[in-house]
């Protein structure tokens, strides 16, 4: 009798503890925590400040999306995190893991949180050389126009590369095979376009060291935040899709996008998704990202 009572008591205790655990799990958005610590939030530097403000109670790490991608491509141990970045990075992660026959790590992706166009910023030299600033014009490499691009591990850098190559090839629906052609290689080696480091944006270099570049791509919201009037932003007629920020849950990470939308809107981003246009596929963008340039 006593044994049965003890067993019933233990069972009841287990059920209560389980119920409490499930309640907490539901309250946390279905997130698994380790020692009570929620999964970290990895934020694209493009939205770093907004991210910090939107997730005040969580550990926020600002990291180039290329670096986060590299880690998640190799991830095998059920890493859990929230990834706040442009939608293309999440798409690359999913496409590449599938291509490499690796299991999926993205458990959910939010609706578009905010967006902003990718624009070209420049002064008189830009409009002298390219009266209607376009990616195609930049790809043509007009004499005397110094083009600066961000690192390919950044959102602006990678999307700029996609647009620039689209401008060179004349179509957004190219494959990475086309990056093997002699014509492409020659263009690459002769275009004279500078690519920045992971830590310094081309836009910043252009603005702080006059004469470095004549044109640099930027997220429009970023440019607007700077409030500069000595140069102009141009939306190229051959622009691709806008930069669209999403929140991806990796592994068992949970939680909402918090106040991210509001924080981004406060910083000149537009709520929700932006305009979309045909552009290079996720696989092609990854090929461009890892392309050996030197």
């Amino acid at each position: 009798m006593a044994g049965k009572r003890l067993g019933a008591f233990v069972m009841a205790a287990v059920l209560v503890l389980a119920a409490v655990g499930i309640r907490r799990w539901i309250d946390s958005g279905g997130e698994v925590t380790l020692g009570g610590t929620p999964s970290p939030v990895y934020c694209d530097p493009l939205v770093g400040e907004a991210c910090k403000a939107a997730f005040p109670d969580r550990e926020v790490r600002i990291e180039a999306p290329g670096a986060t991608l590299d880690r998640l491509l190799d991830s095998r141990d059920g890493e859990s995190l929230l990834w706040v970045t442009a939608d293309v990075w999440v798409e690359i992660l999913q496409t590449e893991r599938a291509r490499l026959s690796r299991g999926a790590v993205v458990s959910s992706v939010s609706d578009p949180v905010a967006s902003t166009p990718l624009v070209l910023v420049g002064g008189a030299t830009l409009t002298d050389q390219c009266p209607i600033p376009s990616w195609e014009c930049l790809a043509d490499g007009p004499d005397g126009l110094d083009v600066g691009l961000d690192s390919r591990d950044s959102t602006v850098g990678l999307l700029s590369q996609g647009q620039l190559v689209t401008g060179f090839l004349g179509t957004p629906t190219f494959a990475s095979n086309d990056l093997q052609s002699l014509e492409y290689r020659q263009w690459r080696t002769q275009s004279g376009i500078s690519e920045g480091s992971a830590t310094t944006r081309a836009l910043d270099r252009m603005l702080t060291a006059v004469g470095t570049f004549d044109v640099a791509p930027a997220a429009l919201a970023d440019w607007q935040q700077l409030g500069r009037t000595d140069m102009s932003s141009h939306t190229p007629p051959d622009a691709g899709s806008d930069i669209v920020i999403v929140v991806a849950a990796i592994g068992a990470a949970g939680g909402s996008s918090g106040d991210l939308e509001a924080e981004l809107v406060e910083r000149d981003w537009l709520p929700g998704g932006g305009s979309s246009a045909a552009g290079p596929s996720a696989g092609v963008l990854e090929a461009l990202r890892v392309e050996q340039t030197n």
């Binding site: 290079p280 696989g283 092609v284 963008l285 090929a287």
Partner: peptide, 9 residues
């Protein structure tokens, strides 16, 4: 070996 973004042609 199909690389990222490569289309068999």
């Amino acid at each position: 070996k199909l690389e990222a973004g490569e289309e068999p042609r």
